[in-house]
Design a protein around this nucleic acid. Structure first.
Lengths: 237, 237
DNA sequence: CGGCCGCTTGACTATTATCAAAGATGGTGG
DNA sequence: CCACCATCTTTGATAATAGTCAAGCGGCCG
């Protein structure tokens, strides 16, 4: 239903995904935990850069991570956000994107070699990986849809609804969401500018679709309408 | 370097990919050919629809296939084009997109069951699949970049340059390309309208970047400039 | 030969980006 | 604890790019 690529939980245990974030079931993860070390990273810190050699696979424990690419002339694109439970840094030998924290974040770092070995030794592990990547690819396609065919309002609605659904999947309320990232990150994820994102938030508020006490807490006042917007079912067409 | 997702050849033999197209090495394909039947399909014919149960995996032999999604209100997005050598229709049990021919196309149809069995029986087969999907995901990310941050000219340049590189990879000239698909397909792939695509072709022609005798044959007159455009290195920034 | 389909071109509109500046917010040090 | 500063967000005015609406052109097929 949305663009936040990796935030789909599955009954599978595994994972693999070049640059994107993937969910991992606790038990299978636990099997590999002996090799992992924990790292605590402040907000707005770079975890790796595009082109860096991949040394570790990271599991997000707390906080949030932003995965992005930057073009020659400085234009930046956010490809995905990773939240607790997501795993990031898999795939090719060199990272295809930058990764930075958007708030204080705790990561488990699993050496790339150990992870690779685990995938090779356990065929089921590898099979589940394929499924996860296929899901991530579906999500990336959905991101293409959102960016290429939805208006500013529809894009922001789609972003908020995805966060709402994620809350729901985690047993939290679907009626409010926290926005750990900055407006710039949201804008670059949705292919908009910070001004347009800000104005759209204001319009949503004025239209009674959401309420915002602080600018990183959104309370939904008309979730059905937002969902309809997110699906591109707007009246104008 | 581009968005035409599946058009990356690798030394791997395999494949897997929800909706997208993937290249397959001739030899490994041959091993499975006994189960395949050939189909010849006219232009503008639907191969499958979004939501259909997946019955076969198809290998494109000649022609070209367009993979697309359509939103509730009719807006359409082209996710990928598939050319000879590409394999389409893998992934989930139901197709996540529509597929239609853009010209007379010959397909090899491999029953889904036979394909699945082959993947399960041969671990290396499955491992290569993961790699292919990872590549497809990288390409999808690149598509996101193109659509969210490039101007109309840059998007079209990126499309043309990708076709040029594909020719090159196939031992053909990089200096001209054929466009088997309609303007609408190009527009929906690049997140533009047919009018904008048409105007951009005209501007490229007027600027001496390309020559076009027929509207489906493009001859490059300034490939370096086009490549620079495609990379988003335009002077205006 | 005629009609249809797809491509091109033109005039105008609209959405979003850009440029600019004024509030918030949060953290730091006095 | 408060004040200040840097950073982020919001708001406003204007501009530019691409979309929309409309019409004309051209080739292809019946």
């Amino acid at each position: 239903m949305m663009n936040v690529a990796a935030h789909r939980f599955s009954d599978a245990g595994l994972v693999e995904l070049p640059g994107g974030a993937v969910s991992i079931a606790p038990m299978l993860l636990a099997k590999r935990m002996q090799a992992a070390t924990s790292r605590k990273i402040p907000a707005n810190e770079t975890i790796w850069c595009e082109g860096d050699a991949r040394s570790h696979i990271f599991v997000v424990r707390t906080g949030a991570v932003c995965l992005s690419r930057t073009l020659a002339n400085g234009r930046r694109i956010v490809l995905d956000f990773a939240y607790p439970g997501d795993i990031i840094g898999m795939g090719a030998d060199t990272h295809p994107c930058d990764a930075h924290t958007v708030q204080l974040t705790r990561l488990e770092a699993i050496p790339a070699g150990a992870f690779k070995r685990a995938v090779q030794e356990d065929p089921e592990f590898g099979r589940q990986a394929s499924i996860q990547v296929a899901n991530a690819l579906s999500a990336a396609y959905q991101h293409v849809v959102v960016i290429s065919k939805l208006s500013a309002s529809e894009r922001l609605a789609s972003f908020l609804v995805a966060l709402s659904r994620r809350n729901e999947a985690n047993g939290l309320s679907a009626l409010s969401v926290l926005l750990p990232m900055k407006r710039l990150d949201i804008a670059d994820f949705l292919g908009l500018t910070i001004e347009t994102v800000s104005r759209t938030f204001t319009r949503f508020r004025d239209a009674g679709l959401i309420a915002m006490d602080q600018h990183n807490v959104v309370v939904f006042r008309d979730l059905p309408k937002l969902r309809s917007l997110a699906a591109g079912e707007s009246e104008d067409e």
